[in-house]
Every structure is written in C-alpha cells, then in structure tokens.
Design a protein around this nucleic acid. Structure first.
Lengths: 226, 226
DNA sequence: TCATGTCCTAATGTTGACATTCGACATTGA
DNA sequence: TCAATGTCGAATGTCAACATTAGGACATGA
C-alpha cells in the first residue's frame, strides 16, 4: 500500500535513512553525549523496524559517533580530552595524505571549487551568521580535498572521523568562535595556494599544522569544562 | 540449534563468529575475489540465521574485505593495481603516525615483545616453513606497534586495511616470496631500533619507506597477472 | 535482426515475535 | 549490618516469514 511513490527516490535503504535521522538528532543535542540509544524507542519514533534501526546504529558506529557493547546497548560517544587528541592525531595523518594526493590528482575544476568555498567562508564571516554555516563550509572544503585525492579507502577513513570532528567543533562553537573565525579563511586560502604549487613537503607540513591549530584552539576552549 | 553449549564461552555474538568464519574462508580461497556471498547460503552453511550473517558481512565490509551494493548483494573485493595503490598509500600514512606515536608511548615490555617477534621471523626464515607463518608474524609485529600507539581510532583505521593487506600478501606469497624473505627481518629490526632512538623525523620517513618497499615488491610480483 | 516491454525468479530488504543476557533490587543467612 | 544469592524487568541478540527489488528470459513488434 504505497500511497506516496514520490519520496521513494532515496533508494538507499531504511538503515541509511535511520542513521541520517539519528545523526541529526545527535548533532542538534537531542541525544547528549553519553545518552543511551534504545532500539525499540528509536524504532517507534522513526516508524521503522528494530532491524533497520540496528543496522543504522552500526553505520553510526563506523563513523565513531556511537559506541555499542554486547548486550549493553549503544550510547552516544562521550567527549574527553583523550578523544580529541586521538581524533586530531589521526586526522592530521589523513589530511597530510589527502593533500599530497590531491596535489597530484586534482583537476582545475576541483581547485576552483575550493576557491569558491573559501570565498563563501569570507562572505560568511563579514556577515553575522551563526558559526554552524561556517563550520559546514569548513567540512565541505576538506570533503573536496579528499574527493580530489582519488582514493576510496582514504575517503572511508575520513568518514570515520568526519562526524566526530563536526561534533567537537559544534560544541566549541557554542562557547564562542572568535578565535576560529579569525583564522579559518587565511588558513584555507593558504592550503589552496599550496595545492596549486609544486612543493610537496611544505604542503604536507602545512596540512598537518592546519589540523594541529584546530586541535589546539578546540582544546583551549573546551579543556576547563571537560 | 543449540547442540553444543560448551563452546558458548565466546560471548561475542554470532555476528562476530560468522565474520571470522567467512573471513577465514576468503583467506583460504574458498571464496575467490569477485565471488558472491549469498546470505541464505551462508546462513545455512554456518547454521545461523540470515540476520547474523548479514551483520557479520557488515563487519567484513568495515575491514574492506567485501563490498555490498543495495539489493545486489555482497561480493569479495577484487584486487586491482589501483586497489593496491590505495591501500598502501593509506597504510603508509597510518604507519607513519603509529610509529611516531609508539615512539612516545611504548613501554619497555612492548619494545622487547617486538624484539621477540623479529627473532621469531629470523628463525622462521632459517627454517623452510611456508610464507604464511612469516606473514602472520609480520602482521602481528605491526599490530603491536599500533597497540603501543595508544590510539583507539588509529587501531580502528588499521583494522580497515589490515585484512586487505593480509589478502594481498597471501596472493603474493603464492607466487614465491624470496624477495620478501630477503628483507623482512632487516627492515623490521631497523624499525625497532628507530623506535628506541630519539629521532622522530627519521622514524617517520623509514616507516613510510617500509610500506613503500612492500608495495613495490607486491606490485612487481602481481602486475602481470592483473 | 534488433529494440522494447513484460513477466518471472532469485536474491536482498524489512518486519515482528521469540530467546538470551545484563543490572538492580529484594531476600536470606551469618 | 553486610555480603552472597535469587528473582525480576528491560533491553539487546536471534530468528523465520513477508515485501521489495534487480536482472534476465521470453515474446512481441518494427
């Protein structure tokens, strides 16, 4: 009894859809860190069966957003300073590879797309929008670099930390993001310049330092409360 | 279907067990690259339900051993030269981070364990065992380094390539492994030495080169047949 | 002969019911 | 009073049946 065949364009399965919805709920704070994600509850709330919810939660575990223990359910990950260190150390290594690979493989179109994103960031800053838009642009910028790297496995590894980084930064923005705002545009613009240049070693180093600067400013804003 | 309540000591759920069995079957060549893994078939063969098989296949997909498309089932990954490049590029980045992190965090016990593994490799070479034992030691060696790095996310990322590397090397060994045999011990011994030393930059570089040497010798042995 | 459209089949996607496990509370005994 | 133990509830783990889909065989037409 399919009443509305139109929204069927998704074609991705209910598990993916459930994962998207739950992820969004985590980002909006509906499920705070450490909260239990009960399968029956979610199934009823989302209008799908427990099996699909279960599979969706498995996808979110791949992204590092939730953690599940045998017969003890799944909970939203708790953010400790140790977690931040781990994620950003891994991200630095991935970004380094992504940048150097993209330097070799990126097309002209992909590079101009990066320019566009940097310009959008600059415009966002002159306005007074909430930091979330800026953050979305930041993530999108790095998404493009990973795409340009042309390495499916690398993109997979990036997905495993991407959501966590988004979550960390969301929390940080809630506490004020002047520091972030001050540096984003310049740092990203420099990355594009280096991508266009021919100096592999400098690019690799700067890509790592870019992540490290993000890590430091995140820890500085979060440490007292954790 | 509870015939034997004794081996119930696993306590890891049927999905994990199913994943282990299927992984083993892939390694032994029972499921060649590109083979379809039908859920009903596996469920019947393993004596568990389709749901558990399904979950187990999802675990194997996390490891990059299988690939599944919506409503088209899951197949064993096919090994192309592109795949080798991707996996080894990613592994080089991960190994670099693992080595430098382990240099800071490794305990004396962990380092002596690495010594033991290198000695075991040397002994294995003087004997005439099949290369699989040597390969297992090789993987175990790097497992220890990742453990010593003390970064759960990094270990997760390593798991996502570990099985693929094992699969690649297995195939390579089948075609003769004199080249591999000649270098393994020396290269790993050097890594341990560098881990004990204080030179971060050299260690990082050598860790990357260690992977690159493995990549080259793998491609050299495999290229004609792929 | 080729293109096209319709079935049909074999597989996966999805679901609700059943079995198992964990944590907490109450109970019992010293 | 306290510790060990039994019971209970709620949640997850597992299962087998139902719905949906992709891909091919077949027939039809130009």
């Amino acid at each position: 009894m399919t009443v509305a065949p139109l929204p069927k364009a998704s074609r991705r399965g209910l598990a993916q859809e459930a994962a998207d919805l739950i992820r969004e709920a985590i980002f909006t704070g509906h499920f705070p860190p450490g909260a239990q994600l009960r399968e029956v509850e979610l199934a009823a709330s989302l209008g799908v069966s427990r099996g699909s919810v279960r599979e969706g939660l498995a996808l979110l575990e791949r992204e590092g957003l939730v953690h599940s223990v045998w017969h003890r359910g799944t909970t939203v990950v708790d953010v400790t300073a140790q977690d931040v260190e781990e994620v950003y150390a891994l991200r630095a290594a991935l970004d380094r590879l992504a940048a150097t690979s993209a330097q070799r493989n990126a097309t002209a179109d992909q590079l101009t797309e990066l320019d566009t994103l940097v310009r959008a960031m600059a415009q966002e800053i002159s306005g007074d929008a909430s930091g979330t838009t800026l953050l979305a642009l930041d993530i999108a910028f790095h998404d493009r670099i990973y795409d340009a790297a042309n390495n499916r496995r690398l993109v997979e590894a990036w997905r495993a930390v991407r959501s966590q980084i988004y979550l960390f930064q969301l929390r940080r923005i809630a506490l004020g993001y002047e520091h972030y705002r001050a540096r984003v545009v310049d740092e990203h613009r420099e990355l594009v310049t280096l991508l266009r240049a021919d100096d592999r070693e400098t690019l690799a180093r700067r890509a790592e330092e870019h992540v490290d600067s993000a890590r430091c400013s995140l820890l500085a804003g979060l440490s007292p409360s954790m």
